[in-house]
Amino acid sequence: MGEAMPRDIIYLTDWRGLLLMKKRIMHIVQSAGGVERYILMLLKNMDSSKYENILVCSNDYKEENYNGLVNVFECINMIRPINIVSDVKAIIYVRSIIKKYKPNIVYMHSSKGGAIGRIANIGIKNNSIYNPHGWSFNMDCDPKKKAIYRWTERLLSRLCNIIIAISDYEKKTAIENKICRPDKIRVIYNGTDIDEYIRKKDIYSLTRADLGIQNDAYIIGTVGRLSKQKAPDTFIKAAGIIKKYIPKAFFLMVGDGEMKNEIEDLIRKMDLQKSVLVTGWVNEPMEYIRLFDQAMLLSRWEGFGLVLTEYMLAKKPIIATKVDAISDLITDRVNGLLVKMDDIEAIARASKEIYEDKELVNLMINNSFRLVNERFNIKRVVSELETLFNNK
């Protein structure tokens, strides 16, 4: 568990000699993947002279990744599926951690982390902020489950001060589903760490040869969890058609998840073993994105699509599905190509067009690069969050 930490408030002095309070922020999170990338970028860019950060997370998180970024790292057994026994134990333990460290602000991330954190925080004096990173009721799932998720979010919305939506679409669907009052929601668009990429891009050393990919291969890649949401099965099915258009196409899947075995079976069934590589989880997704000739995000639902900003930053032509918040980031034929969800023929046609039309590619990547610098810098995210923290 985390190291011991004094409970009394820490004070600093500014240049005028005034007494300032160093705020203690407790982050509670279960989900990994894009949510963890958000957490890492946020912690790296927060002002450590003004804030102490405590991370309370699931076993999917590794403490060594947070050395120097957090004052306390608490790893507990929080699991994604609903499990009454496990969830009650997690709530009890998280409540004890909140009481132990007495944070000024509890910032809860993802549906499960948000549910456990809000219940655990009942009756404790602090300010609480919840960021679902994509509403669970927007998922493609059984209508009964959607109804349960919707009612759960409505009930739990009363147990926090502010809800952060990561896109206009997220706020819109929250209002449509009557999750809470509109004035309780703040839209803070997600972002990517532009400065870090600039620092690292010249020292990235990963090569095609390291991955066993031929030098003349045309790499079509995707980054994301191997889960129903990210549609890795659609990516592989489209790959089978794309190979007919682009014989030298090679498909790189950066990520891992519960569908890994199913995807590997599908790759064998389609006889694509020599044309597809599934990397598993990696520490530096941008090092792999650099190798792409095309980048895809074929989500079935999406609260934001953080990896799209990484594709933009790396100047890769993008193919994405026209679902949910993706249209807040991608304008068709301006900074990417939009296709219908699970339409493998349309995906293949879009891939072929990008392969053949260099003028369109240059237009889209230039527009994307300008957009990510103007709107999706993590420093803007941190600035907006720190303003929120300081007003609490």
Rank of each mutant, 00 (worst) to 15 (best):
A295C: 05
G221H: 13
P132H: 00
R375M: 09
N121Q: 12
N161I: 03
E374C: 03
R349Q: 15
K112E: 02
Y61C: 14
R150H: 04
I179L: 07
I175H: 07
I242N: 13
T13I: 11
D168Y: 07
M341N: 15
S48Q: 08
N77L: 04
I105V: 13
L371M: 06
G221K: 11
K392S: 15
V372H: 04
K50A: 10
I344E: 12
D14F: 08
E153W: 04
G33W: 03
C180S: 07
R333G: 03
K228I: 10
D142Y: 09
R375T: 12
V307H: 07
V382K: 01
G2W: 03
N390E: 15
P232T: 03
G134M: 06
S49N: 09
A239R: 13
I9A: 14
M253I: 07
R80Q: 08
I319H: 03
H133K: 00
N77I: 04
I175A: 04
G17S: 10
N77M: 06
I213Q: 01
L156A: 06
G303D: 00
I347Q: 01
Y189T: 12
L337A: 05
Q294A: 09
A90Q: 08
R199W: 07
L19G: 08
D202Q: 13
K89Y: 08
K228L: 09
I162C: 03
A320H: 02
K269A: 15
I326F: 11
T331H: 12
